[in-house]
Write a protein that binds this DNA or RNA. Structure first.
Lengths: 219, 219
DNA sequence: GCCAAAAGTGACACGAGTGTCACTTTTAGT
DNA sequence: ACTAAAAGTGACACTCGTGTCACTTTTGGC
């Protein structure tokens, strides 16, 4: 645990800086963490999806992590800060993967790639909607976080915009349909809850086909 | 107000029955209501969509209605009861409209009808998802309400099932796509938030076209 | 063994939502 | 005018989440 110099811990350390240089060189190590940041964010995600923004509490999170509530305050001043940090964490990973779409140079491959990526990160869309519920904060850190989120959100759209532009350039996508509708559909359909437990394969293929060629037969 | 013998007030009166027969014949009328049930449900809808299930409170609702919180308890024992009553109210209206689909006897007309109906009731889908968050209650009335909701939900699906069966029978819908995927897509795509403010007409037509024939060109 | 530093704990004061209830207000019928 | 009934109010006791803080625990380095 003490050697995770990952993205997440960098975010976390912004407030409670250790008074020794940082936990790499040969500083005093102090006691071991009872929970990793990855663990914390994982439960945060679960709880956000289960209870929504307003239903998320530090008490619930502490319970899942089997620590005291007070411990969380060592790393995050409040709910807004924790959740925006978490959103940045998720978004960063998503964007890092999305970036690779630029390597593929024809539309068909990009479509396959994008579809698979969004499908593998189904919750992202729901989380983004939850993110819209965060009230504008007075807290410096939180304002900074939401600004960065905004930026990453735009960056995300710009990659997807390129995808659509390519599709229209190759005459693969219908030119009269607005770009944001194309993107909206891809995002939204993937989030359809499979309440009836259709097998994954069939489910994915069906959705992909409808998006591509519709649910109507071509007579 | 005192002469609304509507659906809503019938639900409401289950608990606090007036001691005179009921408010039709010539009973004593007592003082006038400061808010109608329709008004109450309208704000309930707003608040549920804004804050989600856990964010919804009697305090917020009372504030919007410009009454005291206590007044609401005259009609509903608690949040669960109010929200399930509200859900029944919404569902009832939706189902009443949906029923009429059976009058149309070809698939194309049913498709137009269904699409228009769901589009006009865009929030229904979101509300149904919020409804899933209601914890199973000990309260008699609430258990009864959720059971009825379940029934209406199934009834809703059965009407739509008929629609899909008809479509497949007429060879209009692709036979290999599972029925629930067809329904899921129709429901979900209509709920796409139009964040970029595309004109309504263009928005609806684009979505309808993608659902029907896909976003790909037929080359 | 002692120290410094970070991790973690539990108690406290506070604010907000809940559910209840005795009370007041308004109303129509007599 | 008087009354019964329903509508509405506001105070009370309670629970739960919040944020803080002095305190204890664990750790590696000296």
């Amino acid at each position: 645990m003490h050697r995770d110099g990952s993205f997440a811990s960098i975010i976390m350390m912004q407030k409670n800086r250790p008074r020794v240089t940082l936990m790499d060189g040969g500083g005093i190590m102090a006691r071991e963490r009872k929970f990793s940041t990855e663990e914390l964010f994982q439960y945060t995600k679960q709880l956000l999806l289960e209870h929504g923004y307003e239903g998320f509490t530090f008490s619930l999170l502490a319970e899942r992590l089997e620590i005291s509530r007070g411990a969380i305050y060592k790393y995050f001043e409040n709910k807004e800060e924790l959740i925006t940090d978490f959103m940045l964490f998720e978004m960063k990973y998503f964007l890092a993967e999305l970036k690779e779409i630029a390597e593929l140079n024809d539309f068909d491959r990009q479509f396959e790639f994008l579809f698979e990526l969004i499908f593998r990160n189904r919750e992202i869309h729901q989380l983004i909607e939850i993110g819209r519920q965060i009230p504008s904060s007075l807290n410096e850190k939180v304002r900074n976080n939401t600004q960065n989120l905004e930026k990453m959100h735009l960056e995300m759209y710009s990659y997807m915009q390129n995808f659509v532009t390519l599709g229209k350039g190759e005459n693969k996508l219908k030119p009269h349909i607005p770009d944001v509708v194309v993107l909206g559909i891809i995002f939204q359909t993937i989030a359809i809850p499979n309440h009836f437990g259709i097998p994954q394969d069939l489910w994915v293929q069906s959705i992909k086909e409808i998006i591509s060629h519709g649910m109507f037969t071509n007579k």
